[in-house]
């Protein structure tokens, strides 16, 4: 079996769901590898090995990004949420509030991201 992560009988799952499962498991593995490499690089005293580990971590970030993009292209709600939150500068919870105020769940009009300038807020 390609994955032991299926939680329902395979014959009941659509091809779309099986593919999405493959992508999600792949993304999880890439993110886990990023975390491992980051920790090993932090702890490593050999500078050359540390460079290799950081390089490998960055490769995994590329892989994770590619899988995430596949997921976005195949899941309407992922697409909507990533468009809402990614590459924005406003406070992240403020984006959610603004989207709820819009009532549409769509991205608020792009602001300059000034928000609060009070220290500690």
């Amino acid at each position: 079996m390609a994955s032991v992560g299926f939680h329902e009988p395979l014959e009941l799952l659509s091809e779309d769901t099986r593919n999405m499962h493959r992508a999600i498991v792949s993304l999880m593995e890439e993110l886990e590898a990023i975390d491992w490499y980051q920790q090993r690089a932090d702890a490593c005293a050999d500078s050359q090995l540390k460079d290799v580990l950081v390089h490998n971590k960055n490769e995994e970030i590329e892989h994770a990004s590619m899988v995430l993009e596949w997921i976005r292209r195949h899941s309407g709600h992922f697409d909507q949420m990533l468009r809402l939150y990614l590459f924005t500068e406003a406070p992240i919870t403020g984006i959610e509030k603004a989207a709820e105020a819009n009532g549409s769940g769509t991205a608020p009009a792009p602001a300059l991201g000034i928000g609060s300038m009070k220290k500690g807020s």
């Binding site: 406003a90 509030k97 009009a109 000034i114 928000g115 009070k118 807020s121």
Partner: peptide, 16 residues
């Protein structure tokens, strides 16, 4: 902007 450095900020809530 000076006011935003000293007063509470509520929002942004969007156009509506």
């Amino acid at each position: 902007l000076a006011g935003r450095q000293v007063v509470d900020f509520d929002g942004p809530h969007g156009w509506q």
